[in-house]
Design a binder for these strands. Sequence first.
DNA 1: CGTACATTCACGCGGCGTAATAGTGG
DNA 2: ACCACTATTACGCCGCGTGAATGTAC
Lengths: 131, 131
Amino acid sequence: MEEDVMTIREMCEAFDVTPRALRFYESKELLFPIREGQKRLFTRRDRARLKLILRGKRYGVSLEDMRQILDLYDTDDGETGQLQRAIAVARERMANMKSEREQLQIVMDDLADQISVFEQSLQDKMRASAA
Amino acid sequence: MEEDVMTIREMCEAFDVTPRALRFYESKELLFPIREGQKRLFTRRDRARLKLILRGKRYGVSLEDMRQILDLYDTDDGETGQLQRAIAVARERMANMKSEREQLQIVMDDLADQISVFEQSLQDKMRASAA
DNA sequence: CGTACATTCACGCGGCGTAATAGTGG
DNA sequence: ACCACTATTACGCCGCGTGAATGTAC
């Protein structure tokens, strides 16, 4: 707490994750703990990022998607050009998600139809065997 | 066509799958082509099964789940059990998809907020540089 | 001789788990 | 000297295949 950094163990307890997961996130460039010798020290920034990562995970967002989104959050204080780029990337992500959502909806509608067909079939069979 | 069987190549063209996929399905016991020497010959039964496999795939049903459904088809004289099983699996998939859709929507809303923040930032910067 | 089939081994993604091994600090 | 913690490297798993290399039958 002294320097507003946390060890890997403290992070694990605070966020209920394993050390392996944190090292993995670092290797995938989602977290950037500073080093004291060999040991990792996680900053407030890392904690903010991890919070978002875990929330995304609950939402089913892949780490790679999350990394891109987090990179956007960082670009916040950049210059106008960077800001415009960040907006462009964010919109692209948004478009991807919309597309995903639409495809998912199509498959869901289709599956709903299929369930009706199954149920109708079942009704028919039961009537047939009752007759 | 003679004996109502098809070679692997004919199957691939008919169903738009690769030979590798068909061999893979056989190795996982979803298809049971007869052998003529080394060659696989796919029967009408294999075709019916493959059709269901591919439809299930579209709905996100795993091969293992699909195998279990297909197995019921064999042991079930009346097909009623298979239908009920299929309905159960279909409903479960539907529930999963609904959940996925909701989670995706949450993330999308979140990202939309972030985009607004970026846009506001950009507006601020542009006003600042204009002043 | 070519071509279509066959086999087996390997690799890839996602997201870590799980050793195995070694170093460090108190 | 011990213990708890840390580190690194690297292989394993699941689902669903793709691709390469090699062999064989027509």
